[in-house]
Write a protein that binds this DNA or RNA. Structure first.
Lengths: 115, 115
DNA sequence: GCCATCCATCGACGGTTGTCAATATCGACT
DNA sequence: AGTCGATATTGACAACCGTCGATGGATGGC
């Protein structure tokens, strides 16, 4: 499964941003795909809960009660966030621990605003 | 029509961000709604084209050819961006000019990353 | 080996979304 | 008044998305 595949922020012309020049179709597709992963209230809360948890990681069982949804649904959202490059998954015993990918949110933010 | 209604970034505890503390459901809904307006390749390109146009504004007729979609579709996307607080609409003659709302993208970016 | 627990996947269902053609509205010009 | 050109709105349709129940796999303990 591919992780986030945004055109790198720091290529030839440093800090290519949304407002500096017109996005070509391919870049727009990539960025939209990444933003779509964020544009859901449940996923935002999951990201937020994981980020502010002990050790900046959490297992699925810890996330079920806070969001109040079924286990398959939570698993689905975690998969979307992972495939978009915002979370990593590591299995320890029967538990799956999800953690924030450092810099992933910052990279998206740099597309929206000046450095 | 309500414009963007994000909980203010600079309220009591300055810079409440996604990774600092768990989002409550209401804040997650607001932020998701705003991000959803951005999470579309056509809308990203429209935003980008408007931002980098002469005078940072553009009329609908200037946007049809670059994105290659029908006029109703482009009007629809512009409406979504306007209602989300990213664009303003001013009518001059028979033309409707859209322009970036200063600071709107920055406000979203601040939710994703440290100041 | 057997069961219990944690998690992922599958299939299905309703709701949302992006798109277009057709139509309506509004302003300018004759 | 009448027409033309630029936008907005409506209605419809296919595609996508969020959710759940049911099922399947893997791990650890008995």
């Amino acid at each position: 499964m591919p992780t986030m595949n945004l055109p790198l922020v720091a290529d030839a012309t440093c800090c290519a941003r949304l407002v500096k020049e017109p996005l070509d179709a391919a870049a727009a597709d990539d960025l939209a795909h990444t933003l779509k992963a964020l544009a859901d209230p449940v996923r935002l809360r999951l990201l937020s809960i994981v980020a502010s948890a002990e050790g900046a990681e959490a297992c699925v069982c810890d996330l079920l009660e806070p969001v109040g949804l079924s286990q398959p649904t939570v698993s689905h959202h975690l998969k979307v966030l992972t495939e978009a490059g915002f979370l990593t998954r590591t299995k320890r015993g029967t538990w799956a621990f999800y953690a924030l990918v450092p810099g992933a949110l910052e990279e998206v933010a740099q597309w929206l605003t000046a450095p």
